[in-house]
Each structure stands twice: as structure tokens, then as C-alpha cells.
Design a protein around this nucleic acid. Sequence first.
DNA 1: TGGCTATTGATATGTTATAACATTAACTGT
DNA 2: ACAGTTAATGTTATAACATATCAATAGCCA
Lengths: 159, 159
Amino acid sequence: MNTIGFAPHDHGNCVADTLRKAEQHCADNGLRLTPVRRRSLEILLADHRALGAYDLLAVLATEGLGAQPPVAYRALDFLVKAGFAHKIEALNAYIACAHLGECQMPAFLICRACNSVAETDTTLGRGRLNDAASDAGFRIERTVVEAEGLCPSCQKDTA
Amino acid sequence: MNTIGFAPHDHGNCVADTLRKAEQHCADNGLRLTPVRRRSLEILLADHRALGAYDLLAVLATEGLGAQPPVAYRALDFLVKAGFAHKIEALNAYIACAHLGECQMPAFLICRACNSVAETDTTLGRGRLNDAASDAGFRIERTVVEAEGLCPSCQKDTA
DNA sequence: TGGCTATTGATATGTTATAACATTAACTGT
DNA sequence: ACAGTTAATGTTATAACATATCAATAGCCA
């Protein structure tokens, strides 16, 4: 599992590939990637950065795809439930999934300076948290793992 | 590091002990545990459950300690900065620190049914996340680790 | 005492998210 | 093609969470 987000990569391909996978997943599971949903995913995919619901809404509005908050929240809700996007709890913002199809327990590295977000995975590393949960008799259904700090590029700028 | 929250314990002592430690910490560090701040900490300590800022405010208001949002947010800000409380990002809510004085990298187990929260620690378990961060050249400053699920008691109720 | 800083009081507003209900589109079986 | 059903959208309103700003006051200390 590589950590996309800060490293240079072929982003056009990254976007196209994710859209293709999303379409396939919808076809396979009887989900409908409607215009608003598809466009919302494209907007989130535009860069590896978290977008607020109202930021998304602003873009949709300029394109005549809806002007009221529920439009954005419904689209985001669909994308998150389908596994196409994640909510970054520490920012109250949303980001496209960078590992569509192979994403179990996402973890995020969030740059507090430029707001870019890299996604990685902690599936193999839940040791301590799982131990604590089973000691306490707690049944985990979802985990939020987010690290805030400075990305490589913003560390240079500060130095 | 034990995981307080779901297990029975002497809660009166748990509260008194934390208040004592908080007073000591303020005395040692030139911080002022004013009436609003102290009372806010007591309210958060009342049980191992996350409280919204406006829930806290409602209690403060009945006691004549302030009726406007900034009162609650200022108190919470002080408590969080001093390490006496934590923000639960997944709930936009706040909880008293259960390990005052020995809390480095808190992690939370959050029951989605009864909203009770247990606090544990992941200081020794950051392996994967740290690895991913150093691979990416990311400098971590703060981590958010929260697990949502069902506490022992609510698992029984559902069964 | 005077000057500094931290805290509080108060009003307003910004930001994030959902409730509720009417309408329209898509799918299903006949 | 048709009615019955469910999913999606349009729209209005409001709930819930959070901060900016500025004036007033309290504590500290030279």
C-alpha cells in the first residue's frame, strides 16, 4: 500500500483510474453514479486535498448542479458509503479515496499548512488499539486515524 | 495504561483525583483555574461521556456562569490546551482526560449507542503510522485515533 | 499607582449539517 | 403501456457547532 498524496505521480491517470473503478463498482452493485454524484467525485479527485461540503457545493452551483446544502451532503453521503470518499474528521472535510477497492482501514496524513492530505492504510498496524478494545470488551466498527503535521514541501517553506 | 470508561471503578475518587491533579498542574505552571474553567472540568468529569460545547453551556447557564457560546468554547479551549480535556473529532464533542499527567497520544473507544467514551493510549503502537509518515517525509505533530463501535454493555442490549 | 496582560461580557456572525416534505425519475411486474 | 414501488432530487427552513470583534474588568507586578 503506497502513500499517495505528497509524492509526484501521474495524476491524470490517477483520476481516470479511480473514476473507472467507481463506475465498475456501481455497475457491479446496482448503485447509480448520477451526474451530481459523478461530478462530485471528479471535483474531490481534482487534487489530493480535503474539500468542505460547502466548497463542493460552490463548484456544483456554478455548474447548475444544485445550490442547496442537501445536494452536496447527499452526494458526499453516497460517495462515503460507497467507499469512494472519506470524511476527514479533524477538518470536517471530505476527500476522494486514493485506494479505491483496496481500502479497509484508511489513515491520513494532513498538512496543516497547505491542507493536502495523503492516504495510507493501517490494516496491519492496529495492534495496540485492537488490544485495548478487546481488553475492554469493545467491538470496533470503524476507526478514525488522522495525523496532523507538515508535509515535506511545507517543511521546506518553514525552514 | 489502563482503559478507563467502560469498567466499573470508584468514580468519586476518579473525579477528585483528577481535580487535584489539575489544580496542582495550574499552580505549577502559572495557569488560572477560574470558576468557569473549574466548573467546566467538573461537568466533563461527571461521567465518561463526550459532551457538546452547547451541552456544557446549558449546564453553565443554569448556574449563572455564562450564557453565550464563547464562554463554553473559551473554557474548553483552556482545558484542552492544558491537557485536562480532549476533543473527540468524530463527535464534535469534548471529554475530560482520564489520564491526567500521563497522556501523550490518546486514543478513544466511542460507543455509538450510549455515547460513552473510554480513553486509552497508543504511544507504543504508532508503528505503521509512523512508518508511513517517515516514508512520505511527513512530520507528525498531533494524532487523532478514534474507534467507533459498541461498548460491552450495549452489545448485550442489542443481542 | 500605573501599566500590562489575561479573563470575562456581550453581540453578531460564520460554518457545518440535517429535518421535512413535495416532486420527479427509474425500476418491476403485469 | 400501465400502475405500484423505490430511489433520487428540489426546496425551504432550521439545527448544531464555532469564531470574530470589541468593550469592560480583574489579577499581576514593577
